[in-house]
C-alpha cells in the first residue's frame, strides 16, 4: 500500500472529528515579514501531531498562535472551543509547553521546578509536591528530585522540563524541538519514553520539530510546513507503518522532497532504518 496517499485522506477525515485545535486560513506578519501564510490545520483530541519544517518555516509561530501568546492577522484560531489569544485565561491549566532548552529556574531543585506549574494554578503545596514527585518518577528521575539544576545532565534537565509540563495534567502539550539539543542517544531514549507516556495518559500533543525521524517516530499525523508557514504535506503514520522500514523510508523521502531536498535528519541519524526496526 502507499501509506502517503492514504495518510493525506486520513488527515482530512480526522479533521472532521473532535477537533481540539482548529486553524482556518491563518496568516501572521511580523512587520513586513510574512511568517504564516493562509495556514489551515486541525489537531484532534488525543492525537500526537508533528509540525515539521526547516528552521525558519514558522513552526514556532504556529505554536505561539495556538498557545495564544500572539494573535493572527487573518483567519481564526480555536483551541478547545475558545480563541486562545482573546480568552487567554480560559485555557489556564489546559495547556503546557516543553521547550527546546529546559528553561528550568536554577534556584529551584528538580522537584521545585516540576511543581511550578501547579503552584501557578494555585494548587496546595502538598498536592503540587505529590504530583511533581509522581511525574519525576515517571520520567525516571527518582533520586534526583532534590538536586539543583546545575547538578543535572542535559537529558535529566529536559526530563524535569517534561515532568513540569505533564504535572499540570494539561489537555494539550506542546513540545517545541525538545529533543533537538540533546545528543543522539539521549534524544532517542527520551523521545521513546516520552511518546510512551503521552500515549498512556492519552493527551493531545503538538510536537514541533525539524527532524524527520523524530516526527516519524512519535506522531500520529505530520503536517509538513513550507516557509512562510503553510501546510505543504499532511500525512498519517500508523503503528503498522512505523514497523515497516520500507514504508518509513518512503515517507521520509517524500517529506524530504516536500521540504526541499537534503535533510539534516538523515545526516544526524545514519542508523535511521535500524532504529525504525527496533520500534
Amino acid at each position: 500500500m502507499n501509506p502517503t496517499a492514504n495518510s493525506t485522506a486520513n488527515a482530512t477525515t480526522t479533521a472532521q472529528g473532535d477537533a481540539f485545535i482548529e486553524m482556518r486560513d491563518v496568516s501572521k506578519h511580523f512587520g513586513d515579514f510574512l511568517a504564516v501564510d493562509q495556514l489551515s490545520m486541525t489537531v484532534r483530541r488525543g492525537e500526537i501531531v508533528a509540525l515539521l519544517g526547516r528552521t525558519g518555516a514558522g513552526k514556532s509561530t504556529v505554536m505561539s498562535l495556538s498557545m495564544g501568546t500572539i494573535a493572527p492577522d487573518q483567519g481564526t484560531v480555536q483551541v478547545g472551543g475558545v480563541d486562545p489569544s482573546r480568552e487567554f485565561d480560559a485555557l489556564r491549566g489546559k495547556m503546557a509547553v516543553a521547550f527546546q532548552t529546559d528553561r528550568l529556574l536554577p534556584w529551584r531543585t528538580a522537584v521545585e521546578n516540576a511543581e511550578l506549574g501547579l503552584l501557578i494554578l494555585n494548587r496546595s503545596k502538598a498536592e503540587a509536591r505529590e504530583a511533581a514527585l509522581h511525574w519525576l518518577a515517571r520520567v525516571k528521575l527518582e533520586g534526583a528530585e532534590h538536586k539543583y539544576v546545575h547538578e543535572l545532565s542535559g537529558g535529566m534537565r529536559q526530563r524535569v522540563s517534561l515532568a513540569r509540563a505533564l504535572a499540570v495534567d494539561p489537555e494539550l502539550i506542546f513540545l517545541d524541538e525538545v529533543f533537538s539539543q540533546l545528543d543522539h542517544v539521549t534524544s532517542q531514549v527520551l523521545r521513546r519514553d516520552f511518546s510512551r507516556i503521552v500515549r498512556e495518559v492519552g493527551k493531545t500533543c503538538v510536537f514541533v520539530t525539524h527532524r524527520i525521524e523524530d516526527a516519524l517516530d512519535i506522531a500520529d499525523r505530520i503536517y509538513v510546513l513550507d516557509a512562510p508557514a503553510r501546510v505543504c504535506l499532511a500525512l498519517s503514520v500508523s503503528e503498522q507503518t512505523r514497523r515497516d522500514p520500507r514504508a518509513l523510508a518512503d515517507l521520509h523521502d517524500q517529506i524530504a522532497q516536500a521540504i526541499g531536498g537534503d535533510t539534516e535528519s538523515a545526516d544526524h541519524d545514519p542508523n535511521y532504518s535500524e532504529n525504525q526496526d527496533l520500534s
Partner: peptide
Amino acid sequence: DMMESFRP
C-alpha cells in the same frame, strides 16, 4: 515565556 505558558 516559560512562566507565561502557565498563564500566571
